[in-house]
Deep mutational scan, measured.
Amino acid sequence: MQRVNMIMAESPGLITICLLGYLLSAECTVFLDHENANKILNRPKRYNSGKLEEFVQGNLERECMEEKCSFEEAREVFENTERTTEFWKQYVDGDQCESNPCLNGGSCKDDINSYECWCPFGFEGKNCELDVTCNIKNGRCEQFCKNSADNKVVCSCTEGYRLAENQKSCEPAVPFPCGRVSVSQTSKLTRAETVFPDVDYVNSTEAETILDNITQSTQSFNDFTRVVGGEDAKPGQFPWQVVLNGKVDAFCGGSIVNEKWIVTAAHCVETGVKITVVAGEHNIEETEHTEQKRNVIRIIPHHNYNAAINKYNHDIALLELDEPLVLNSYVTPICIADKEYTNIFLKFGSGYVSGWGRVFHKGRSALVLQYLRVPLVDRATCLRSTKFTIYNNMFCAGFHEGGRDSCQGDSGGPHVTEVEGTSFLTGIISWGEECAMKGKYGIYTKVSRYVNWIKEKTKLT
């Protein structure tokens, strides 16, 4: 034993070699072989497995989906700052455009905790909710729209109204504003409101030439003092309507412009014939205590009207009353817009006519005020429907199939267009061939041609 100890002390290297040989010859039971080890760690190889990531292109799944990435790591994937920024906006807080917040056709661009709407022409605001041009839906104005110097929408209202708090709607500024039905039992019968379409306001006024200088022999019209197929109006439903009495009662109609003036057809009036105007009328054979009678003290036909040349060209006249009318729910003026808007309103496509005229061709006159909704007829169809001249200051309205029309005794009465609950004068009943005849239409004086003249002559002093 002493000898062994001496050998170990003198030859430590020998001992180490012996131990190493023993270990190498022993069977290893701690580690699995290569094949079995792979069965336990069965993990798919990654895209760049075996390579240094710093030297390969980034992978979106590896960089940002398996674990949260930084902007720089995302930049490695896209290799483009702009594309990385677009991805980053949604990656950080989701897609803010998912709810489609942009209105009126706006395009949404996502941002971090926010979004941006790219608005089409005519709109602005956070969600493109603000109209900035009158060309689109009248700028959301209830009545009139004008573009300011910086191309912003400025709404306005006709006389007797003021802008509401929203700067879009119009509200009454006087007790009985024009064009409004205020009798409670008839307010439910107000005709369907007309909503502004998209309009090209630059070209809204037709490029028409008034044929002022045409000389033409007097034409022989049949029954051209021209509501057939209409309905009984309720008291106060058309408070701007008046009836004219002269040699015979209810020979023509008219509309209240203001307390002192009536507008009617020029062919209705004769110099030297006494005319009485009755406002607030409903049943011409009954006294309903809503009527107001006034005498006409002055007749002003349009300066281009000449019955000797043509009885229905420039067929418009103004009547001055001896005493002002007292405005109330049964006696209310009709609204008159400017030339541009009167023309736009007419193009809405349908209007209402009213009167006490004959209820059928050569038949009896109506006792109760009649009204009828009539569609506008395109000019080409209008011209083809008659052998008589249709001037540019006239328009056609009615039904091709016949059966409904204005008729004798309705002449001078109103053709009105309702705009968001307020009625505007767009025409004056003038003439036609018979009444409600198939293929024939009622012919009306186009008020847009005469609004400046009306307003100039009827100013209240």
Rank of each mutant, 00 (worst) to 15 (best):
Asn5Gly: 13
Glu10Met: 14
Gly13Thr: 12
Ile17Ala: 04
Leu19Gln: 01
Leu20Asn: 01
Leu23Tyr: 07
Leu24Met: 10
Val30Tyr: 15
Phe31Arg: 14
Leu32His: 15
Ala37Arg: 04
Ala37Leu: 05
Lys39Ile: 08
Pro44Ala: 12
Arg46Leu: 10
Ser49Asn: 15
Gly50Glu: 09
Gly58Ser: 13
Arg62Leu: 09
Arg62Cys: 04
Cys69His: 03
Glu73Gly: 07
Val77Trp: 08
Glu79Pro: 15
Asn80Phe: 03
Thr85Pro: 14
Thr85Ala: 09
Trp88Gly: 15
Cys97Ser: 02
Glu98His: 11
Glu98Cys: 07
Asn100Asp: 10
Pro101Ile: 05
Leu103Thr: 14
Asn104His: 15
Asp111Lys: 14
Asp111Arg: 14
Trp118Ile: 08
Pro120Tyr: 05
Phe121Lys: 13
Gly122Pro: 13
Gly125Tyr: 02
Asn127Cys: 04
Thr133Ser: 11
Cys134Gly: 02
Ile136Asp: 15
Asn138Phe: 04
Cys145Met: 02
Asp150Ser: 11
Lys152Leu: 11
Val154Trp: 10
Glu159Asp: 11
Gly160Ala: 02
Lys168Leu: 10
Cys170Lys: 01
Pro172Asn: 06
Cys178Gly: 01
Arg180Gln: 06
Ser182Thr: 13
Ser184Met: 06
Thr190Met: 05
Glu193Leu: 13
Pro197Phe: 10
Asp198Gly: 13
Val199Trp: 11
Asn203Lys: 08
Thr209Gly: 12
Asp212Met: 09
Asn213Leu: 06
Ile214Ser: 13
Ser217Thr: 11
Ser217Phe: 10
Thr218Leu: 08
Gln219Met: 13
Asn222Ser: 13
Phe224Asp: 13
Gly229Asn: 06
Ala233Asp: 05
Phe238Gly: 02
Ala250Gln: 09
Ala250Ile: 05
Gly254Trp: 00
Ser255Ala: 05
Ile256Pro: 00
Asn258Pro: 01
Glu259Gly: 03
Glu259Asn: 06
Ile262Asp: 00
Val263Ala: 04
Ala265Thr: 03
Ala266Ser: 03
Val269Gly: 03
Glu270Thr: 05
Gly272Tyr: 03
Gly272Phe: 06
Thr276Cys: 03
Gly280Leu: 02
His282Arg: 07
Thr290Met: 07
Ile297Leu: 08
Arg298Met: 03
Tyr305Gly: 02
Ile309His: 10
Lys311Met: 08
Asn313Gly: 06
Leu318Ile: 04
Leu319Tyr: 02
Leu327Trp: 14
Asn328Thr: 10
Thr332His: 06
Pro333Gly: 03
Ile334Tyr: 00
Ile336Arg: 00
Lys339Pro: 15
Glu340His: 13
Asn343Val: 04
Phe345Leu: 13
Lys347Met: 12
Ser350Arg: 13
Gly351Thr: 02
Ser354Gln: 08
Lys362Phe: 05
Lys362Ile: 04
Arg364Tyr: 07
Ser365Trp: 09
Leu369Tyr: 09
Leu369Gly: 06
Arg373Pro: 11
Pro375Gly: 14
Ala380Arg: 06
Ala380Lys: 14
Thr381Ser: 05
Thr381Ile: 14
Arg384Gln: 14
Ile390Asp: 09
Phe395Ile: 01
Gly403Gln: 09
Gln408Val: 09
Gln408Phe: 14
Gly409Asp: 06
Asp410Pro: 13
Ser411Gln: 14
Gly412Asn: 05
Pro414Gln: 11
Glu418Leu: 11
Gly427Glu: 01
Ser430His: 05
Met437His: 12
Val447Ile: 12
Arg449Gln: 15
Tyr450Leu: 01
Asn452Val: 07
Asn452Pro: 14
Lys455Leu: 09
Thr458Ser: 08
Lys459Gln: 13
Lys459Asn: 13
Lys459Pro: 04
Lys459Val: 13
Leu460Thr: 05
